[in-house]
Design a binder for these strands. Structure first.
Lengths: 200, 200
DNA sequence: TTATATTAACGTTACGTATCGTAAAGATAT
DNA sequence: ATATCTTTACGATACGTAACGTTAATATAA
């Protein structure tokens, strides 16, 4: 623990400005929430934030990636995995999810996701962190419930998870019915009835 | 019914060309399927079809509407509502749905829907005809099953329907798992187990 | 004759890139 | 120690391209 020979070769030159990135992300988020995805152009973000276009392009390849990064900053609250029944845990989580997505934010996220290159690494990271994090937490909850007999086989776990989390995005995308807390509750209740031990 | 006095006032001048519309729709559809929604620009459609831009704009307000119209031309096959158990009917319908959407077409539809103005009349028509037609047919199937006791209360019909059709679009949008026929089967099976009479 | 079709061009917006001079930080020499 | 390289990022500006949606001019078909 002494020589700096191979440890961190000390970068030269002006360091990238974290403040500039932060300002760009904030401006992007503001535009997304007030004017929508279609108006969140790189030029608009540059004008609003005072950050130069080339600086923005140095951090993000295009407007879609910047939008996803901006939507990623304020994460959704993580689900409380431990304690209680699976139903209680899922209902609590679903309440948070519905609150977070039944808003401008939810629509913007859906649009960003649909518009983005599905193969891009950025898109995959976004999906995993924003969309699938709830689903992954749900998997933990359901596997624990399965282990202690609260739910019973046959359980097609992936199908069951998509039946719980898919409807929220379906309503968000199609807009035929509102995304309400009661809706979230009904989804969880119905899904769990399909894998309940008795016919209760 | 004879005189043309107030019925059909005999249009004067050159009539709109149905052929031009058709050519534009075909070109739009081809571009959607081969190059994707992002590259289906009005100019590209005009160039490919030989129809002038102003003519295209006379029929559709923007590229989104043209895209939806093009996707609307070849409708999805309607579900066979009558006969058999609810499970058989839903599985058959879901097979068709999965086949139709587990393709370029499905992704294009999802993108068009996410990108479109949710309040536009065109968008609403598109949702009703392309997205919700399956769901509506499913409602008929399930209500008949409910009437003859094949499924039993409590049934939150809207939640149940979204649990059946939502997951398909969820997978299409997020792309975390493939949309396969087996997946469709599992969804129908699991959903019906939630409303089955006994604990079977 | 009159409404539509086609073509061409228009102004606008945003794209993504290149270049300019400046700012900030480590390296180097006095 | 302090001044001067060197390197890298910065903000500003301008560029050529692409597509937008509109308009004017001409051709064409009832």
């Amino acid at each position: 623990m002494s020589q700096e020979s191979n440890a961190t070769p000390k970068k030269r030159g002006r360091p990238p400005s974290a403040a500039a990135q932060k300002r760009a992300l904030e401006a992007a988020h503001e535009i997304l929430m007030t004017e929508g995805f279609g108006r969140m152009t790189i030029e608009a973000v540059a004008a609003r934030s005072g950050v130069g276009k080339p600086t923005i392009y140095r951090s993000w390849a295009n407007a879609q990636e910047l939008a996803m990064a901006a939507l990623l900053v304020n994460r959704l609250p993580e689900a409380e995995v431990g304690g209680g029944t699976a139903q209680a845990a899922l209902v609590a989580q679903m309440r948070g999810l519905v609150t977070a997505f039944a808003s401008t934010r939810g629509r913007q996220i859906t649009m960003a996701l649909a518009a983005a290159d599905p193969e891009s690494e950025f898109t995959k990271a976004f999906r995993n962190r924003v969309i699938l994090s709830s689903r992954n937490a749900g998997r933990v909850i359901l596997e624990e419930a399965l282990a202690r007999g609260e739910i019973v086989p046959p359980v097609d776990m992936d199908a069951l998870l998509d039946m719980i989390y898919g409807p929220v995005f379906f309503r968000l995308l199609v807009g035929h019915r509102p995304v309400s807390p009661e809706f979230g509750d009904a989804i969880v209740r119905t899904a769990l009835r399909a894998v309940a031990p008795s016919g209760a």
